[in-house]
């Protein structure tokens, strides 16, 4: 047992957690507004692919990253408009967008896979500053940023109030359309960031690279204890959720439990925690 809690191990776990956490951070904001975003995973893949493709075609890494982030922002805003303006049920709209994203990712990759990226990008995934891996630092910074925005600004409060009771928020003069747009924008941006870091970490890109994350992204938020009804929770909880899921995955891997069981477990977790949360609120 003594070896489990060495600094090295802790850092390894943090590194493993970082990409999942990055992806589910933005989603947390959307879930806090009482909506959902199914497109984070495929969008991350798309953005990672765009970034890798641009770099392979001779553009500087910075431009690749910016393009990826812009793609993420565009998808996020589209999601926001579909949900906030057209009032589509968020799971339908974002499910559709996820199909578009994964389709586009296949096109960007031309059906292939990219291996071997220049060092200025891979540093983002494999590099370290002192003892800390870069992905951990990136995730840490974005976490701090998002935490501050959600807990310390008026905008953050609007996110919570919209999720707690959209009707009451409207009757308080809160512009829920802008809030929802901004939430999806953040979700898109974090999806893009997650995709870029993942590409850098893998030193490769392919259209299906985030498939393994699939449900885990939502599960991390739910396990963290943010309510799917909106308005309760926060990114700090998502951090715990992502950490727990990573550790569970690790344990299951070590114990030799097939990855299929893992998805089953995540499905049951969502049903159980989502259901408990919902019935708790309905009873009161």
């Amino acid at each position: 047992m003594t070896t489990v809690f060495t600094l090295d191990n802790i850092i390894t776990v943090l590194r493993q957690t970082s990409i999942l956490f990055l992806l589910s951070q933005g989603l947390t904001v959307v879930i806090l507004t009482g909506n959902i975003d199914f497109s984070v995973g495929p969008l991350a893949a798309l953005c990672g692919c765009i970034c890798a493709q641009m770099i392979v075609h001779g553009f500087p890494a910075g431009l690749g990253i910016v393009s990826a982030l812009m793609t993420g922002a565009a998808f996020g805003l589209t999601n926001g408009l579909l949900v906030g303006k057209l009032k589509l049920p968020s799971f339908v709209a974002t499910y559709g967008m996820s199909m578009v994203a994964s389709g586009l990712a296949t096109i960007v990759m031309n059906g292939g896979v990219i291996y071997g990226l220049p060092a200025d990008l891979t540093a983002l995934g494999a590099g370290t500053v002192g003892i800390l891996p870069v992905p951990v630092i990136v995730t840490g910074i974005t976490f701090a940023f998002l935490y501050a925005v959600l807990k310390k600004t008026s905008f953050g409060r609007c996110v919570y109030l919209t999720g707690l009771n959209q009707s009451a928020a409207r009757y308080s003069g809160i512009n829920s359309l802008m809030t929802i747009l901004a939430a999806y924008l953040l979700s898109g941006l974090f999806g893009a960031a997650g995709g870029v870091v993942m590409t850098a970490r893998l030193n490769a890109a392919d259209a299906g690279m985030t498939e393994a994350y699939g449900l885990k992204i939502i599960a991390a938020v739910v396990v963290g204890g943010s309510s799917l009804l909106g308005g309760e929770g926060g990114v700090e909880r998502t951090f715990l959720g992502a950490l727990v899921l990573t550790v569970i995955s690790n344990i299951m891997n070590i114990a030799g439990i097939a990855s299929e069981w893992q998805n089953l477990v995540f499905g049951v977790i969502i049903l159980l925690i989502g259901g408990l949360d919902y019935s708790r609120h309905h009873r009161s």
Partner: peptide, 8 residues
Amino acid sequence: ITTLGTQN
């Protein structure tokens, strides 16, 4: 939420 869970 139900069918997302059972989907998996």
